[in-house]
Design a protein around this nucleic acid. Sequence first.
DNA 1: AATACCCACAACCGCCAAGAG
DNA 2: CCTCTTGGCGGTTGTGGGTAT
Length: 154
Amino acid sequence: MGRAPCCEKNGLKKGPWTPEEDQKLIDYIHKNGCGNWRTLPKNAGLQRCGKSCRLRWANYLRPDIKRGKFSSQEEETIIQLHRILGNKWSTIAARIPGRTDNEIKNYWNTHIRKKLVRMGIDPVTHRPRFDLLEISEIPNSSVTNEFLKVSAFG
DNA sequence: AATACCCACAACCGCCAAGAG
DNA sequence: CCTCTTGGCGGTTGTGGGTAT
């Protein structure tokens, strides 16, 4: 049995943030900055743990977040950085202005990874993998068919 | 129209590194 | 050194809104 999640102590709130909570957090940080996350919720009048506040600010409320659809340029940059860095999301995010590590990680997992797999590229190694190709995208030749048998079942 | 299914995203959790004492 | 606290990171998932049956 693992230890209790931090928010369950003291009956602190979990789950989606309400607009009222967002506003409290924004107001507080505008006045005081974001120095001490542990004491912030109490001072700002929020029934949240510091971790939850930090995450909400860093990934959603911070004023320098771009939001919205990723451009194809951004997508290409993410793929190239991931090829070099692997799942170092915060390092990747530091190279992509206005995007958070969480946002990039989500985008990778829900869009890019699947896209690479569909193209027959291993999303971990970034190398071709015929056993990941969708059948419809496999060239119809006996040579590739033989290759597939070997790489998928060998 | 009703229900089942899917998927994207916000937010969670556990772990660990850094810093203070 | 060691221990404790805190913030930051990466993996994972619950949920809600959209789509298919």
